[in-house]
Amino acid sequence: EPLWIRPDAPSRCTWQLGRPASESPHHHTAPAKSPKILPDILKKIGDTPMVRINKIGKKFGLKCELLAKCEFFNAGGSVKDRISLRMIEDAERDGTLKPGDTIIEPTSGNTGIGLALAAAVRGYRCIIVMPEKMSSEKVDVLRALGAEIVRTPTNARFDSPESHVGVAWRLKNEIPNSHILDQYRNASNPLAHYDTTADEILQQCDGKLDMLVASVGTGGTITGIARKLKEKCPGCRIIGVDPEGSILAEPEELNQTEQTTYEVEGIGYDFIPTVLDRTVVDKWFKSNDEEAFTFARMLIAQEGLLCGGSAGSTVAVAVKAAQELQEGQRCVVILPDSVRNYMTKFLSDRWMLQKGFLKEEDLTEKKPWWWHLRVQELGLSAPLTVLPTITCGHTIEILREKGFDQAPVVDEAGVILGMVTLGNMLSSLLAGKVQPSDQVGKVIYKQFKQIRLTDTLGRLSHILEMDHFALVVHEQIQYHSTGKSSQRQMVFGVVTAIDLLNFVAAQERDQK
């Protein structure tokens, strides 16, 4: 057995438009009618409502009807409940999964919650491996369901041993009777949507819809739904939504950006999952974080739909894509998950301010006199920076000697690579993860907040409520011999709460 199987392995699926269902090699399930009293909570997966979006479509000038398939009504709160249950049931049916076995899954959280929910009911041990950027709410729900959680670096490539995929496979090879159901490759993922989600949409719309818009992560949702719609409703256009920084969209030119990270969760990847059939997507749109969270908040405030950030991405694209539809036509959007997962993220004004998705003037509360002053007023001194090749031991000596707790790590040209902190280095040394002679590049981390000289002290204040420091950066445009230009970030300084307090105190003292 291989040590790991690539999540982007070539698909062996034989589905073709027009091929009889009787030739399918898979076990198919028909939607079942729910009894009045459910035998367990797993029976509350599927049969989610279709809700008309009344205000947002009109606000953006849509002539067509805009409908939302509300997947956050599933038992675990997301569309991923469907595939989690289906993968477990299919693994039980073919004898792969037996009582007492362990389920391991690399996930952005929602599939993990679905699997942990099913594992709690069915009696399996469950280990979820997820990147650090995923919300604390997801972690809390997983723990409450009895799952064990392993976190991995957000910026690790999918084929790196440190990625959530790599760590999951390492655990599988170490733990007896453990299984990775593997949402990236498992046919049960798109089949769950082909058999149930798509049929529900067709039934709820009486077979009449002209466009379907869905955000894409593993691709199982859009693949399964689109294949069924292509068979039953061939005139329906399928629109895929991919965040900026991901590479799922086609044509490839759409993916060209210097951005590699994004805040919206559960969609987009740096590889093409095996289950994603991009041939059934008629057109791709890219979405960005700001519009995703703005539209998610709009869905909550104006439509009462308590959905997550990827739902915002989907609707932001839908109001663009559906401009081509006329009166009497219908566009369906998939709202994948609930706001429950993001209470401390985009639902929080403070978080939105820190990330730059909300401006101070958007909030009406009274601010102190210094709130709208610029960061450049602080008069920061030149920063202490270190090269990635310097040793951890030497870096600790320098920081202690100069009285700093942290320093930016830059390359020879001064471009920011990340940050090192005294606390992080000492804990890594004590844990045996690094040696004093190791290069400081081994303990770089990139989960820090950046701020510009033109940003306000109010925004800085919000950042420092949650973080010990902020890195002050400025952009530099560099022209190359080819005539092309590129933008790079340079370090201007490091600012802490002490710097802000000293500035405010000094100004008030001078005024007296």
Rank of each mutant, 00 (worst) to 15 (best):
I239Q: 03
G240M: 00
G240W: 07
P243F: 04
E244M: 03
E244Q: 10
G245A: 06
G245V: 05
A249M: 04
E250M: 12
E250C: 09
E250T: 10
P251M: 06
P251A: 08
E252T: 14
E252K: 14
E252W: 13
E253D: 15
L254V: 07
L254E: 04
N255Y: 08
N255P: 08
Q256D: 05
E258S: 10
E258K: 14
E258G: 15
E258I: 14
E258C: 15
Q259R: 12
Y262S: 00
Y262K: 05
Y262F: 13
E263Q: 13
V264E: 05
E265M: 03
E265D: 05
G266A: 02
I267A: 03
D270T: 05
D270I: 01
I272Y: 06
I272H: 06
V275F: 07
L276G: 02
R278P: 02
V280E: 10
V280K: 09
V280S: 13
V281W: 02
V281L: 12
D282V: 13
D282T: 08
K283W: 12
W284T: 01
W284F: 04
F285K: 04
F285C: 07
F285P: 04
F285D: 13
S287R: 04
S287C: 15
E290W: 10
E290M: 14
E290R: 03
E291R: 15
A292I: 06
A292F: 01
F293D: 00
T294W: 14
T294N: 05
F295N: 10
F295H: 03
R297S: 01
R297G: 00
L299D: 04
I300F: 08
I300C: 07
I300K: 03
E303Q: 10
E303S: 08
G304D: 03
G304Y: 00
L305Y: 09
L305S: 01
L305A: 00
C307W: 06
G309L: 00
G309S: 04
G312E: 00
G312C: 03
S313R: 03
T314Q: 12
T314C: 06
V315P: 07
A316D: 09
A316G: 10
V317N: 08
A318K: 01
A318H: 01
V319H: 04
K320F: 10
K320S: 15
A321M: 13
A322V: 02
A322H: 01
Q323G: 11
E324P: 12
E324F: 15
E324D: 14
L325H: 00
L325S: 01
Q326V: 12
Q326P: 10
R330W: 01
C331G: 08
C331I: 09
V333N: 01
V333P: 06
I334W: 00
L335D: 01
P336F: 01
P336C: 08
P336V: 02
D337H: 01
D337G: 04
S338C: 03
V339W: 06
V339D: 05
V339A: 10
V339T: 11
V339P: 06
R340D: 03
R340L: 05
M343S: 04
M343R: 06
M343I: 11
T344A: 12
T344Q: 08
T344Y: 06
K345G: 03
F346I: 13
L347G: 00
L347R: 00
D349V: 09
D349C: 07
R350F: 04
W351E: 01
M352Q: 01
L353V: 15
Q354C: 03
Q354D: 10
K355M: 12
G356M: 08
G356S: 11
G356N: 10
G356W: 05
F357P: 03
L358V: 11
E360R: 13
E360F: 15
E361I: 09
E361C: 12
D362P: 10
D362R: 12
T364E: 12
E365H: 14
E365A: 11
K366T: 13
K366I: 12
K367M: 15
K367R: 15
P368D: 10
W370E: 05
W371Q: 08
H372F: 14
L373I: 12
R374H: 13
R374Y: 02
Q376W: 08
Q376F: 07
E377F: 09
E377Y: 02
L378S: 07
G379H: 10
L380Y: 09
L380E: 08
S381K: 12
L384A: 04
T385D: 04
T385S: 15
V386Y: 11
P388A: 14
P388H: 07
T389A: 02
T389E: 13
I390Y: 10
I390F: 05
I390Q: 12
T391G: 02
T391C: 09
H394M: 09
T395C: 04
T395F: 05
T395Q: 08
I396F: 10
I396T: 13
I396P: 08
I396K: 04
E397K: 14
E397A: 15
I398N: 09
I398T: 13
I398L: 15
I398C: 08
L399V: 09
R400H: 14
E401P: 13
E401V: 15
K402V: 15
K402G: 14
K402Y: 06
G403K: 09
F404M: 14
F404D: 01
D405S: 07
D405H: 09
D405P: 10
Q406W: 04
Q406D: 02
A407R: 01
D411P: 15
D411E: 07
D411Q: 02
E412F: 10
E412S: 12
E412C: 15
G414L: 09
G414D: 10
I416Y: 11
L417A: 06
G418E: 03
G418M: 01
G418W: 05
G418S: 14
M419W: 13
T421W: 03
T421G: 02
L422N: 09
G423D: 04
G423F: 13
M425Q: 12
L426S: 14
L426A: 10
L426W: 06
S427P: 08
S428D: 11
L430N: 14
A431I: 09
A431N: 11
A431C: 02
A431S: 04
K433R: 12
V434K: 10
P436L: 14
P436T: 12
S437C: 14
D438E: 15
D438F: 15
Q439T: 12
Q439M: 05
G441S: 10
G441Y: 13
K442L: 15
V443F: 14
I444G: 15
I444R: 15
Y445T: 10
Y445A: 09
K446A: 03
K446T: 11
Q447D: 14
Q447G: 05
F448H: 09
F448A: 01
K449S: 08
Q450A: 10
Q450N: 11
I451R: 09
I451G: 08
R452N: 15
T454D: 04
T454V: 14
T454W: 12
D455W: 08
D455L: 09
D455M: 11
L457C: 06
L457M: 15
R459D: 11
R459A: 13
S461H: 08
S461R: 05
S461E: 11
I463S: 08
I463W: 02
M466K: 14
D467S: 12
H468M: 11
L471D: 02
L471P: 12
L471V: 14
V473N: 15
E475I: 09
E475C: 14
E475V: 14
Q476L: 14
Q476V: 08
I477E: 08
Q478L: 14
H480W: 06
H480G: 03
H480M: 11
T482S: 15
G483E: 15
G483R: 14
K484I: 14
S485Q: 04
S485V: 05
S485N: 09
S486Y: 13
Q487I: 15
Q487N: 15
Q487W: 10
Q487H: 13
R488E: 12
Q489R: 02
M490N: 12
M490F: 15
V491D: 01
V491P: 10
F492E: 13
G493I: 13
V494Q: 05
V495N: 08
V495D: 08
A497C: 08
A497T: 14
D499H: 05
L500S: 05
L500M: 14
L501Q: 01
N502Q: 15
N502F: 11
F503A: 10
V504M: 13
V504Q: 09
A506D: 13
A506W: 08
Q507D: 13
Q507Y: 13
R509N: 12
R509K: 14
R509F: 14
R509V: 12
D510E: 14
D510N: 14
Q511H: 13
Q511T: 15
Q511S: 10
K512F: 08
K512S: 14
K512I: 04
K512N: 13
